[in-house]
């Protein structure tokens, strides 16, 4: 593929060729991702509908399949209302601050062996840094809207994101102890063997903590008190309409798919099949990655349909007083097992 591209563009100077090749790869990641995000919203409405014993949207297009397109067109046509006395520049850049990190993290996600845009050695650290940036979109949006509800919602949302990031970071440290490398490809390759070699087994508490922290970071139910309609009327993005709101929406769903992909990479073997035998190896690794990520993403939707919303002080209590001690304890346990018990060599 690469040679073909370089042959095709041989009339360009070399640096430009490399840049064009990278841009092609970026589009090859972003375009399907945007499509996935759009249809994830559709999947959410249909699945939650079926869980509530009703059919989701089924009018637009054949059985409702054009619903996300209709939503996108509608949002494009709606007026972007900038409230009076709001800070115009910050109001319009806040959605970018939300979307930028959500998309940029996909640069280091390996979809299959070798199918990664940038195979850097500090991949996991880079992703953690980018998820920390996610709090800025929320804060700037809330402040720039010049509205009490928006600002209060933004502060609470930011405090919640920040609390659960610690739990996520500690869970990632556990993964690193077992994997021995920050490179995401190495983390997946360290799980090769069979389903029992995947890291969900030695790191089960950390898997649970990471997923719960991921749901809380993306402000999804049951942790969506900062943007639940009945609580604070959409919180930090109450003043947003039209495409600016759509960008926040995109960022939230892209983050959800990102967390699902990371859970799969770190705990469920990435693109590896459950067993390296005949019927499982017929499916290409890229499809295995897709199937696993879809299953984990389905959990996000299932949580939303099933659990009642947590109260804000319950959310903070969970993040600080429950998840952090569990992860710290498990890190100590992992270290002790690695050095002082015979099974330590099993996952060293």
């Amino acid at each position: 593929m690469r040679e073909y591209f370089f042959w095709l563009t041989a009339w360009l100077p070399h640096n430009l060729q490399v840049t064009m090749w990278v841009l092609t790869k970026i589009v090859a990641i972003l375009a399907p991702l945007m499509l996935c995000v759009a249809y994830f919203t559709f999947a959410e409405r249909k699945l939650i509908g079926y869980m509530q014993i009703r059919v989701g949207p089924n009018r637009v297009g054949p059985r409702g399949w054009l619903q996300p397109i209709a939503d996108a067109l509608k949002l494009m046509m709606k007026e972007i209302i900038i409230p009076s006395r709001a800070n115009r520049f910050l109001f319009l850049t806040a959605p970018l601050l939300s979307l930028g990190p959500a998309l940029a993290a996909w640069a280091v996600i390996p979809f299959s062996d070798g199918l990664v845009l940038a195979d850097i050695d500090a991949g996991l650290l880079y992703i953690l840094a980018l998820t920390s940036m996610g709090v800025y979109g929320v804060l700037v949006a809330g402040w720039a809207s010049n509205s009490k509800y928006a600002f209060l919602g933004a502060m609470r949302c930011a405090a919640q994101i920040v609390a659960y990031e610690i739990a996520m970071g500690f869970a990632l440290v556990g993964v690193l102890m077992v994997a021995g490398s920050l490179n995401l490809r190495d983390i997946v390759l360290g799980q090769s063997g069979s389903m029992l070699h995947w890291y969900w087994l030695p790191l089960l508490p950390l898997l649970v903590v990471y997923f719960i922290a991921g749901v809380a970071e993306t402000n999804r139910a049951p942790f969506d008190v900062a943007e639940g309609e009945s609580e604070i009327v959409a919180g930090f993005h109450v003043e947003y309409s039209g495409m600016a709101f759509a960008v926040f929406f995109l960022a939230e769903y892209a983050n959800m798919i990102l967390i699902a992909a990371l859970t799969v990479l770190m705990f469920f073997g990435g693109w590896l099949p459950p067993l390296e035998v005949a019927p499982f190896t017929w499916l290409p690794p890229l499809m295995w990655f897709g199937v696993k990520t879809s299953l984990v993403a389905f959990l996000f939707l299932w949580f939303r349909a099933t659990f009642p919303r947590y109260r804000y002080d319950q959310i903070m209590r969970l993040g600080w007083k429950v998840l952090i001690p569990i992860t710290l304890l498990w890190i100590v346990v992992l270290g002790m097992v690695k050095f002082y018990t015979p099974i330590g060599v099993w996952f060293a």
């Binding site: 490399v18 970026i26 972003l30 998309l103 940029a104 940038a118």
Partner: peptide
């Protein structure tokens, strides 16, 4: 370099 480009394209 791809990461830099990706951030620019994302924004």
């Amino acid at each position: 370099f791809p990461i830099l480009l990706f951030i620019v394209v994302g924004l």
